[in-house]
């Protein structure tokens, strides 16, 4: 097949799977229709089954990944919009961000010590709890690999979405602030999406936490890496 055509079809496949599962999820709120789960899965299966060469897949779709940087900048808008909320609970928000970030790093470090995974994999784990654009920026400091990091971040998000509600019930966590911060700090964008399903307040707080943990991770990564390293 013509390679340019194949590359264009790959872009169409990516857009189709994403917007398709998004529409499906809006109609039927089932976890397995969630775009974070269904879209990457469908695309991965298609690429593997049809044996599409990765260079063709990336010829045009890498432009989508290039939008990660503008998306990071766009996070300034929700921070600005919710400045009142930030002023209202500065201590809770900042300590929540710090605790979430440190716990994420600590658990990753523990996994590194307890399991025998290859270093490129365990290094990529370090930044797993922050949003992808920040994670990809920060992973280099720990010796992680962007592609592996992107996948581990995705997996972390899916897990956070799935386990949060039973965990909150068992641990008797009721306040919207606690739920929002925990979801934003442990499961980034997916957690924020889940938090918005629980309630508007939870969603806003989770998004803010996600943004601040992301920024903090990028800022602190060289320091943490030298402490661990």
């Amino acid at each position: 097949m013509n390679l340019t055509l194949l590359a264009l079809l790959c872009l169409a496949l990516t857009l189709g799977c994403y917007y398709g599962s998004k529409a499906l999820y809006r109609r039927k709120q089932r976890v397995w229709f969630a775009p974070i789960l269904l879209a990457p899965l469908l695309i991965l299966v298609t690429v593997v089954v049809l044996k599409i060469p990765l260079t063709s897949y990336f010829q045009y779709t890498h432009w989508l990944a290039a939008l990660l940087a503008p998306a990071t900048i766009a996070f300034a808008v929700p921070i600005y919009r919710e400045r009142q909320l930030i002023k209202q609970y500065p201590i809770t928000l900042s300590i929540g961000v710090i605790v979430g970030l440190l716990l994420g790093l600590l658990t990753s470090w523990l996994l590194m010590q307890l399991t025998t995974m290859p270093t490129e994999l365990s290094n990529s784990l370090m930044v797993r709890s922050v949003s992808t654009p920040f994670a990809i920026e920060a992973t280099g400091a720990f010796g992680g690999i962007p592609e592996l990091t992107a996948m581990l971040v995705l997996l972390t998000g899916i897990m956070g979405m799935l386990i949060c509600e039973p965990l909150f019930r068992v641990a008797n966590i009721r306040s919207a602030v606690a739920k929002g911060i925990a979801l934003g700090a442990s499961a980034h964008g997916a957690g924020a999406a889940k938090a918005s399903e629980i309630g508007r307040q939870e969603g806003v707080i989770a998004s803010l936490t996600m943004i601040f943990t992301g920024i903090a991770m990028v800022l602190m990564a060289p320091l943490f890496a030298s402490v661990i390293g």
């Binding site: 779709t61 998306a71 654009p133």
Partner: peptide, 21 residues
């Protein structure tokens, strides 16, 4: 900003596919 943040997931699907390496 709303579109870039709302469809953030779309932008990191390609890096996830790259994991096939």
């Amino acid at each position: 900003a709303a579109w870039l943040i709302g469809d953030l997931l779309l932008f990191f699907i390609p890096p996830v596919v790259a994991v096939l390496k």
